[in-house]
Amino acid sequence: MLTRTTTVGTGNPADVAAPSGTGRRATHRLSAPGTDDSVAVAIRDLNAYYGSFHAVGDVAFDVPKNEITALIGPSGCGKSTVLRCINRMNDLVPGARIEGTIQYRGQNLNARKVDAVEVRRRIGMVFQKPNPFPKSIYENVVWGAKINGIKGNYDELVERCLRQAALWDEVKDKLKESGLALSGGQQQRLCIARAIATNPDVILMDEPASALDPISTLKIEELMRELERQYTIVIVTHNMQQAARVSDQTVFFSLGEKRMGVLVEASPTRELFTNPRDQRTEDYITGRFG
């Protein structure tokens, strides 16, 4: 803790609430990964390549526990790529190569010997377009638990997860109906319930509300606020207002040389939006770029 010179979202609301009045901090130093209990995932020296294209360069930031971290930036800046590194989804992309360390519970998730399947059980994901299975609502929630060998009362599991996803009251009488018969916003909450059912630590959300109407979006955002008590959330969003509304920490990416995505700034959300350290961040959030 002593090595940290900046507050990268310690979870203390006072940090977030108080805009930094002391001016811009010149350096942004990160602790050695694995030394800080308040950090869920520590990303260091992350580089991503698609074939010969260097998509993301030297990214490093901490994801604080039980907080919401928003990744923002212009299209193609690599924020989704970074998100997908955290649960090794890029393994599924032919020609993708990821270098660097992603420290989680004292382990480097990016190490070859780490089983991506195990990683994804601990670090769940919600996708941009709601993608429930073409099965019943019940089966949608239960499937992840089943394949991961989680035993117990599935009826209770379904109710608990659907309640947590703020969907229970709307679907409790039609659990046997198709998950695809729900509205877009309900489908996305079903996907969140499904992700919770495997009992993950971290939930990654890749623009979870971009395909939804404003009211559904609001519901998802409220839900995220609820979920952060129990889970660590990382969200990619195109919507700066959304990042400002829901997140505790914001990480801003931009395009560097040769269209390589680079991390510009990672700060407590309030600070980033009111007092950005970097000119590029300021240009972006004030709408001069992007």
Partner: peptide, 27 residues
């Protein structure tokens, strides 16, 4: 079969065979 269906399965910590057997093949 839409790739999003496969991603949904993998995202829950399923193996390739589990995804194929439970979602891709039935679809």
């Amino acid at each position: 079969v839409p790739p999003s269906l496969r991603e949904a399965g993998y995202g829950l910590g399923a193996t390739k065979w589990q995804v194929t057997r439970s979602h891709v093949l039935p679809a």
